[in-house]
């Protein structure tokens, strides 16, 4: 997994509440058996005017000119500014994969759906929670000034605006540690292999019906 320490990135607005994972990456693209290549279909139904199909050459498709990601001023954005309950709906990890593949490294929103929030950390993507009022102000600033970029400092848990305003954010220690160092979750858990085996031995004693039924 990629490390996340400090980044500065152009901000793109996703100005609606309850953006669900079907909207982030529609289901026809879930048929892929790969982890990469979802970027061109991020927000497919909003970004293009036609219905997207897997395996299509997206550069030939009609773009929706009203959608921010299609506007030149947001080209190369790596921070997505969003509204409350971002990422609700299905558990598909294709949603963070698509965001990451497109080039986003950070999302800033007042709140997220639980599974999506969790999935982001597995993919080097930092979901920052800021107060709804602050997010509102950031939206105004993004619209007002072209080239608007934010600095996201995970170590110090801080978002900094171009005019020097700083906002702190919360992130739990374990997730922060993993993201800062780009650590592999499975490797970390396997360090506890002995504890897992000891647990299994106890469970086998107490609840033997939980074992060996399916074989």
């Amino acid at each position: 997994m990629k490390k996340f320490t400090v980044m500065q990135g152009l901000v793109a607005p996703m100005d609606r509440a309850n953006v669900d994972t079907d909207l982030i990456i529609p289901k026809q693209f879930l048929k892929s058996i790969k982890r990469s290549g979802f970027g061109p279909n991020l927000f497919d139904e909003l970004r293009y005017l036609d219905e997207g199909q897997p395996g299509q050459d997206c550069s030939q498709r009609p773009l929706n000119p009203d959608f921010p990601l299609n506007q030149p001023r947001y080209r190369g954005a790596s921070v997505l500014l969003a509204r409350e309950n971002f990422g609700c709906g299905s558990s598909r990890e294709h949603a963070p994969w698509a965001l990451e593949d497109y080039g986003f490294r950070c999302i800033v929103a007042p709140s997220y759906a639980d599974i999506f929030y969790n999935n982001c950390f597995k993919n080097g993507l930092l979901p920052v929670v800021l107060d709804a009022q602050v997010v509102e102000e950031l939206f105004e600033q993004v619209y007002a000034s072209e080239g608007y970029a934010l600095t996201i400092d995970l170590e110090n848990q801080r978002v900094q605006t171009p005019d020097g305003e700083c906002y702190g954010f919360e992130v739990d220690a374990f997730r922060k540690h993993r993201l800062l160092h780009g650590l592999d979750d499975i490797g970390l858990t396997l360090e506890s292999a002995a504890a897992i085996r000891a647990y299994e031995e106890r469970a086998r004693e107490q609840s033997p019906w939980l074992f060996d039924a399916i074989r």
Binding site: K122, D185, I186, T189, E200
Partner: peptide, 20 residues
């Protein structure tokens, strides 16, 4: 509860999940 694909791999490999 539902999990993402990274966690599917994690459960396959370790029979555990890191949870809050």
């Amino acid at each position: 509860h539902g999990i993402g694909t990274s966690e599917v791999e994690h459960v396959l490999a370790t029979q555990c999940l890191v949870q809050q």
